[in-house]
Amino acid sequence: MQRAIQGAPPGFDNLTVHEQIEHVQALWERIAAREDDVPVPERHKAELDRRLAEVEAAPDAGRSWEQVEADLRTRLSTRR
């Protein structure tokens, strides 16, 4: 039996899991559309600054997305 979540909108618990996920995604899209209204904690800003400084200090230290993706696809293909 499904447990009702406190604060869920009326009828939410009667939706299928797929419908609930779609509902939550739609809500998030509405929130994200107003990005200037979404507060960003100072610790997140500090972490972004730290990571940016790290990349700028050693721009060739990482790998491109294409390299990472190719490695992942190789790994996944050997598991099948």
Rank of each mutant, 00 (worst) to 15 (best):
P39V: 01
T74I: 03
H44N: 08
P41H: 10
E22R: 13
L27W: 14
Q67E: 15
W28F: 12
D13N: 11
R50F: 09
V24T: 13
I21M: 10
A8F: 04
A33N: 03
D13F: 02
H44S: 07
D60E: 14
L52N: 09
E69A: 11
V17Y: 08
A70G: 05
W28A: 07
L27V: 01
V24Q: 07
Q6H: 10
A61Q: 10
A70H: 09
A8G: 09
R75K: 15
M1A: 13
E22W: 00
A33W: 01
G7L: 06
A53C: 04
D13Y: 04
R63S: 11
T74A: 13
V17M: 05
H44I: 08
A46V: 07
W65G: 06
I21F: 08
R34P: 00
D71C: 04
H44P: 01
R51W: 09
R75A: 14
E47Q: 12
T74E: 15
Q25Y: 11
W65D: 09
A8M: 06
P39D: 03
A57E: 11
E47H: 14
Q67S: 13
D60K: 09
E19M: 04
R50T: 04
A61K: 11
E54I: 02
Q20E: 07
G7V: 04
P41C: 03
E66Y: 08
A46Q: 13
D49M: 11
P9I: 00
R30Y: 03
A61S: 13
A61G: 12
E47T: 08
L15Y: 02
R73P: 04
L27I: 07
T16I: 06
V17K: 12
E29S: 13
A26R: 12
R73F: 08
P59L: 03
A46E: 15
E22Y: 02
R50W: 05
W65Q: 10
V40K: 12
V38P: 01
E29K: 12
E56H: 08
V55P: 01
D49F: 02
E47F: 11
P41T: 01
A53T: 07
N14H: 08
Q25T: 11
K45Q: 14
E66W: 06
V40P: 01
